[in-house]
Design a protein around this nucleic acid. Structure first.
Lengths: 220, 220
DNA sequence: GCGCTACCTTAAGGCTGCCTTAAGGGACGT
DNA sequence: ACGTCCCTTAAGGCAGCCTTAAGGTAGCGC
């Protein structure tokens, strides 16, 4: 947990630095807007404690430049001007939290922990096989980077196959994944969907294991 | 943006409900710990406003049970006991923000917006996609720089879609975000709103994924 | 090589789900 | 109280998907 402190008042800055260090944070502290932007451009921080009143500009400029650079680091604003309007505008400007002076060190630390906790852990579970990429969250499929439009059944078949790459799925198993118990099907529907998938994704991806079923094949 | 309000004081609860509705949130309000836990187990909310003092238990119990269930919904604590120790313990218990009474409705709304956008993985207040720009704070929308007048429902649908660009939202999911529990709808209202949005924002923005739902499409 | 079986391919029909339009009612402001 | 806007509901039409079915093709045993 590395935190950048931007605060021009020497006493406050040192207090924050010591207090947050005690709370287990690694801290870097700067006093001006310019050095703040330099630090943010140079290093990567897990959070920023940002005073709004700086000698060479406003903290909002720092915040705006940070967001414009597509930097998502959580920012906790700190300010003496503590009206509701200030808070609202600060938050809507892209800050994640707002504290008015005087503040309590323990609370600053607690709010930083909350911000860090929230910003951590955002993972997407993509399934990849050969040049095919399947995104379960978006129910979308790409082949070598270009999106492929699949119908619902086609997607369901592919999703089943890719859920266990290399494993063999019988037609009966695939039907179970495609249809509810009430809508049993008596035809070669699965074969047709496989055929459509091969048309859209190219040959060699879906292998036929004669007499048993289908599986992802070719290379890995 | 659907928000659960947990507050036992009738006047405060109604005030929150009205105020947040004005700020563009869809709200459900409950007064007890038990009904709060039931609501959280049943529905999916984008955020929770949680009073700590409830007649049949503490809000911390609700929060703890929520986190134990691996539910990451952002929680904004609300309380009369406003000491630093309370705030710290609340935040460290898994809350994402903390406001002491008396609070300002605008600030509650602003903090909820901040929580929601951070929870969605965004850092900037404005959401942009293709030529569309949406400002959650002002509930305004622009297409290629020129403002577009959207009704409340239309805005809500668009906001939901833009909160996760590219992700697919089923009609059921969109209804969840548009309507509270008491105002369930049994019709094709969502389809009609989508249609109106397409008229106002141009074709190609909202894609239909047949049998699954809608999403923002085309380019980025 | 022959026949059998399992699978592939193609096309057509039915059906589900979505789009579009329009009308009625309710909320809100004037 | 009236007008306006918006929201919901409902019905008709259309498009795309899914299934079915029939004929063709490749593997396998004899």
């Amino acid at each position: 947990m590395r935190v950048l402190i931007v605060e021009d008042d020497d006493i406050l800055r040192d207090g924050l630095k010591v207090g947050l260090a005690l709370a287990g944070f690694t801290t870097d502290a700067v006093a001006t807007r310019e050095s703040a932007e330099a630090a943010l451009a140079a290093g990567s921080f897990d959070a920023v404690v940002l005073d709004l009143m700086l000698p060479d500009g406003s903290g909002t400029d720092v915040l705006k430049k940070l967001r414009d650079a597509r930097n998502d680091t959580p920012v906790l604003l700190l300010t003496a001007r503590d009206t509701v309007a200030d808070r609202v505008s600060g938050l809507d400007m892209g800050a994640d939290d707002y504290l008015g002076k005087p503040f309590d060190l323990d609370e600053v630390a607690a709010r930083l922990r909350a911000l860090a906790r929230r910003s951590a852990g955002r993972s997407t579970a993509l399934i990849e096989w050969a040049t095919i990429r399947l995104d379960p969250a978006r129910q979308s499929v790409e082949k070598a980077g270009t999106p492929v439009r699949l119908s619902r059944r086609e997607y369901a078949v592919l999703h089943a196959l890719m859920s266990q790459p290399g494993a063999i799925f019988s037609k009966a198993t695939l039907e179970d994944k495609l249809y509810g118990w009430q809508e049993e099907v008596e035809s070669n529907a699965v074969e047709v969907h496989i055929h459509h998938l091969r048309n859209k994704l190219g040959p060699g991806l879906i292998e036929t294991v004669r007499g048993i079923g289908y599986r992802l094949g070719g290379d890995s």
